[in-house]
């Protein structure tokens, strides 16, 4: 049983938007994650999604991230997954998406170079 509360929160972090996701992302609330990602993209700023506190993600959660990436690419907006936890990485690898997303250790590291 997970002790982490499911949550998604967005903050403006200087030059980019940071979406922090925590808990077990499944069908029951993945649409909230999707909305948060799409709302962050609507700001027009680069977006980082922090997945360090995600203990499980199902394909509806992955779908939210894919939709975010697709939207970001269409607008040439940087979109990075940061501090990807091992369970999330396993699902990304299963779907061969680990090479599709930009992954970084931290949002600062991701956006420092740009």
């Amino acid at each position: 049983m997970s002790t982490t509360v499911n949550s998604v929160a967005t903050e403006a972090a200087g030059t980019y938007m940071l979406v922090r996701v925590a808990g077990e992302v499944d069908l029951s609330w993945s649409q909230q994650v999707r909305r948060a990602v799409l709302d962050a993209l609507a700001s027009g700023q680069p977006v980082a999604v922090d997945l360090s506190a995600v203990g499980y993600i199902d394909s509806s959660g992955i779908a939210a991230l894919v939709e975010g990436l697709q939207g970001a690419r269409a607008r040439r907006q940087p979109f990075v997954l940061v501090a990807v936890s091992a369970p999330v990485r396993a699902v990304l690898e299963l779907a061969r998406l680990d090479s599709v997303f930009a992954l970084a250790a931290s949002a600062d590291a991701a956006f420092a170079a740009s």
Binding site: L27, S30, Q31, R34, S59, S60, I62, A63, A64, V66, E67, L94, A95, R96
Partner: peptide, 19 residues
């Protein structure tokens, strides 16, 4: 069984075809 957005359904089902 769900009321997911059609774009989510499309991505989820194609994701599983990829898997």
């Amino acid at each position: 069984h769900t009321r997911l957005d059609e774009s989510t359904i499309r991505i989820m089902s194609r994701l599983k075809l990829e898997v």
